[in-house]
C-alpha cells in the first residue's frame, strides 16, 4: 500500500498538491490518503505532499510524522521541510517561486524554507538560485528517505515513479 500524506489545511490546496500525486501513485498499487492531523497507518511507501506557500499548520502536528523515520518516504516541499525537521537539519528562511534549472533538468519550486548544509543527507541534485547554489534533491545517508525542495509532479514525474517502482510496486 502507498500512503499519500496531505500537508494541506485547505481543501482547495488538496486539489492542487495531493490529487496529482494520487493519480501517479495509483499506477503502482493501492493508495490511501491521510491528512497531517490524522494517525498515519503502516504502508510500503509514503509520499508527503506539498501545500500552499501560506500554509504552515502541519508544523503543529509534527508528532504524527515521527514514525516515518525508518520507512520508505518521499517528502515533497512541505514534506521536505517535515523530513528535514525530523532529522534536526537546520532550515533557513529562503523563498523561491517558479521554475529553476537543476542537475536533473528543470523543476518547479514553491518553497520558503531550505536546508543549505545538510548533515544527515547526501545531495542527488542542486539548483542555482539568486541566493546561491543549494541541494534540492536529497537522500538520507542510510535510510530510504528522499526529499525534493521542488514539486516533481510538475516536470519530474519519473522521479516519483522510480521511487514507487522501487518501494511499492507489486506489494499488497
Amino acid at each position: 500500500m502507498i500512503s499519500i500524506i496531505s500537508t494541506c489545511s485547505e481543501r482547495l490546496s488538496e486539489k492542487e498538491f495531493v490529487d496529482p500525486l494520487v493519480r501517479i501513485a495509483k499506477k503502482f498499487g493501492e493508495v490511501k490518503i491521510f491528512n497531517y492531523k490524522e494517525q498515519i497507518q503502516k504502508a510500503d511507501a509514503y509520499i508527503i505532499s506539498g501545500t500552499a506557500l501560506a500554509d504552515f499548520d502541519y508544523e503543529n502536528y509534527m508528532k504524527n510524522f515521527s514514525n516515518l523515520k525508518n520507512e520508505n518516504v518521499l517528502g515533497i516541499c512541505a514534506g521536505y521541510q517535515i523530513i528535514m525537521s525530523l532529522f534536526d537539519e537546520h532550515l533557513s528562511e529562503k523563498k523561491y517561486i517558479g521554475v529553476a534549472k537543476t542537475d536533473i533538468g528543470k523543476a518547479y519550486f514553491l518553497f520558503s524554507k531550505m536546508v543549505e548544509r545538510p548533515t544527515n543527507f547526501i545531495t542527488l541534485a542542486t539548483a542555482e538560485f539568486p541566493f546561491g547554489k543549494i541541494p534540492v534533491y536529497l537522500k538520507h545517508k542510510s535510510r530510504n528517505i528522499f526529499v525534493t525542495a521542488f514539486h516533481p509532479e510538475v516536470y519530474n514525474v519519473e522521479l516519483i515513479e522510480n521511487f514507487l517502482r522501487k518501494y511499492a510496486e507489486g506489494r499488497i
Binding site: 485547505e10 486539489k15 492542487e16 496529482p20 500552499a52 501560506a54 517561486i97 509532479e153
Partner: peptide, 14 residues
Amino acid sequence: DDVGIWCFNPLWLN
C-alpha cells in the same frame, strides 16, 4: 505572496 494572501490553483495538473 506579495499581497499577503493565499493562492489556490485547484485545477493544477487536473
